[in-house]
Amino acid sequence: MTQPPEIIDIHPHILSDDPAAYPLAPVGGKVSGWAAGRPVTAEQLLAAMDEAGIAKAALVQASTAYGYDNRYVLDSSARHPDRFVAVGCVDPLAPDAAGTVRTAARTPRFAGIRLFTTGSTMPGQAGWLSDESTHPFWSAVQEAGLPVCVQMRIAGIPQLVDVLERFPGVTVVLDHMAYPAIAPGREEAAFGEIEPLAKYPQVFLKLTMRNTVPLETADAGRFLVPLLDAFGSDRIAWGSNFPAAEQPLPELLRLAHAALSVLPEADRAAILSSTARRLYPALT
């Protein structure tokens, strides 16, 4: 019998219980509801991971809590190097963005960058993703080899394509798969919204509860099978979105297992484990 892989979560968030040491400074100036109402510390996340059977995680900076202050995800990764790496936020519009990227690439446990262009506190799609002022940032990212998680909507795909064409060495991970509108009877159309990105081998997809919750009522196979054919399981990785998601971490993993049950075992293993290690080798 094949040994099941260690499960890796590439999209949990953490918040400190010490606001004096880690003061709030959210992107856009507004703290998200989940950050205010159900924060989870690094140690609480570890307990939830142990309960769910999750081995390791890439801690994604809580943009709507700490903005560009990445100290908590970095400090937590340093305290638990066998379990965590950090994905920190960088302001690509800042005058020193390229230098910040180079510093990040030399920082232990700093494994990736996150850009927040939309979300619960920023419902519209920001228009700066491919702006000329961000080119020094993207050039530095390409040189550093750090993967960039981009939280964006489908409307931002033309901007992203511009980045991919200009900087073909940049690895991009789409948070929540850019929110395709998955719904019963709309599975193939939802796949069609992100299918144009399949031809770019540097684009990875992050499957989260934003996708798996709709797949509970939709026909998962009609969305996931063409997705797998187009991108390959080695370009898809699972993330919980805990605790931004209201469900407990074990339930979020159950949702992932249920959605992925339509796929072959080897592909499920890639999405739940090996693709994460490909993106973040320090988790190996």
Rank of each mutant, 00 (worst) to 15 (best):
P5H: 13
E6W: 04
I14Q: 08
D17E: 13
P19N: 07
P19Q: 12
A21P: 04
Y22D: 00
Y22C: 15
A25H: 08
P26H: 02
V27L: 15
G33I: 03
G33L: 03
A35E: 09
R38V: 00
T41S: 12
A48G: 08
A48Y: 04
I54W: 03
I54M: 06
Q61W: 06
Q61N: 11
T64Q: 09
Y66Q: 05
V73N: 10
D75I: 15
R79C: 08
P81E: 05
D82M: 03
R83F: 06
V85I: 08
V87H: 13
D91W: 08
A94G: 03
P95D: 11
T100G: 00
A104V: 06
F110H: 11
A111C: 09
T117M: 11
P123Y: 14
Q125K: 07
Q125V: 06
A126L: 11
D131R: 14
S133K: 15
H135I: 01
F137H: 04
A140H: 01
Q142R: 14
L146H: 01
V150R: 07
V150F: 02
Q151Y: 12
R166Y: 15
F167V: 11
F167A: 10
V170D: 12
V170W: 15
R186M: 13
P196A: 07
L205T: 00
K206D: 02
T208W: 03
V213E: 05
A220F: 04
G221N: 12
L227Y: 09
L228A: 06
G232V: 06
S233H: 12
S233F: 01
W238V: 02
G239H: 08
S240Y: 00
P243L: 00
Q247Y: 07
P248C: 03
E251S: 01
A256T: 02
A258F: 15
E265Y: 12
R268D: 01
R278N: 10
L279G: 04
Y280I: 05
L283H: 06
T284H: 13
